[in-house]
Design a protein around this nucleic acid. Structure first.
Lengths: 188, 188
DNA sequence: AATTTAATATACCGAACGGTATATAATACT
DNA sequence: AGTATTATATACCGTTCGGTATATTAAATT
């Protein structure tokens, strides 16, 4: 593993354990076994490290997410594939996703807010457009697409947290059940 | 307003805006127009201020929550009253509840974790017991009470966040619809 | 009125913060 | 082989951190 990768790895561990603000760059450098200027050589500043940590991990997620979120006149199917993307990603990157969830509702100022908010809005916007497209086929969904996007994301993330607490497995059957439960209420 | 109340008020504003770790006690004292030793006189240390902020705001919530969460052989009714308690509290204390949500999934170490985690678990445990009691009346809920507690809380908080983003009003009708949507999937 | 107690301010502590100037070792290019 | 570039370390910068020793003012008690 390269020095850069070790720095990113240790930063994730420490940011998750103690929080971004409470973790000093010195401690990250120490954990990686290098000096502080080495860290600044690779990432410019503390926020650059945060940004690199987010973009490297989320690169794969966005690719899968964007292909799953397209509407093909079957909203349940789209939701299921979206849920599977989330679940797979959370299972493959549990440390990172747990950390990302911590940051999703963060203070209204500071590095974390500035870096993470756009990423959350990107998810919400795509889901909102999915429900909007679906509401053209299902009249009773009309005018509620934003709310559906919010609550669906809420259930997805609550389920992932349940997985972190070893309550569910987060397999394809869970994805089916959760989406089914969600839509059944909406359709009826 | 007493000096103590002003300190609590300004601490909430700053903790929410910049985060607990990023907010220095000096800044809180300045915002309240007093010296730092005054803050330490009332709260002992920074964590004491955090603790006081939590307990003073949540005192009312716990009272309402605990009366709402009892099971009277009508799970939908219990859930609705719980939802109404959350919604009323969030509407009456929006700044505090938004901050509390930020902290609910926080780093695994530090003051915030130590102070907030027990409060989250208290909610989850009570809801879990509610669903457990209900599963004695509804066989198809059996063995899933913990998961129901998780996802129900997830929807409640997602809805409150939707309220903060001015998407829903969070009135009694919303509480009804959300609980109905939640249970309809479970019963079917 | 005298005295104790609570509330506040000034000034300071050592430690840790994010960040950098400078120097050196290792690698890549010409 | 010599030169440029990349990667790393030592040592330091000014600032802010949480917290406190001391002194003073205001309020309550006797």
């Amino acid at each position: 593993m390269t020095t850069k990768e070790v720095l990113l790895q240790q930063a994730l561990i420490l940011f998750r354990k103690e929080g971004y603000d409470a973790t000093g760059v010195q401690k990250i450098a120490d954990a990686a076994g290098v000096g502080k200027p080495t860290l600044y050589h690779y990432f410019g500043n503390k926020r650059g490290l945060l940004n690199a940590l987010l973009s490297t991990h989320l690169e794969i997620f966005w690719k899968d997410f964007e292909t799953a979120v397209v509407y093909q006149h079957d909203i349940v199917r789209s939701l299921e594939s979206v849920a599977r993307v989330y679940f797979e990603f959370a299972k493959n990157n549990p440390e990172f996703y747990a950390w990302f969830l911590c940051m999703s509702n963060t203070p209204t100022e500071g590095d974390i807010h500035d870096e993470v908010l756009p990423l959350c809005e990107k998810q919400w916007t795509a889901l909102s457009e999915l429900f909007l497209a679906a509401s053209k086929d299902h009249g009773n969904m009309k005018g509620r697409h934003q709310r559906y996007a919010y609550t669906f994301l809420g259930i997805i993330n609550a389920s992932i947290q349940a997985y972190f607490n070893k309550m569910i497995k987060l397999n394809d059957r869970d994805a089916f059940e959760i989406c089914h439960q969600f839509m059944h209420g909406i359709f009826s």
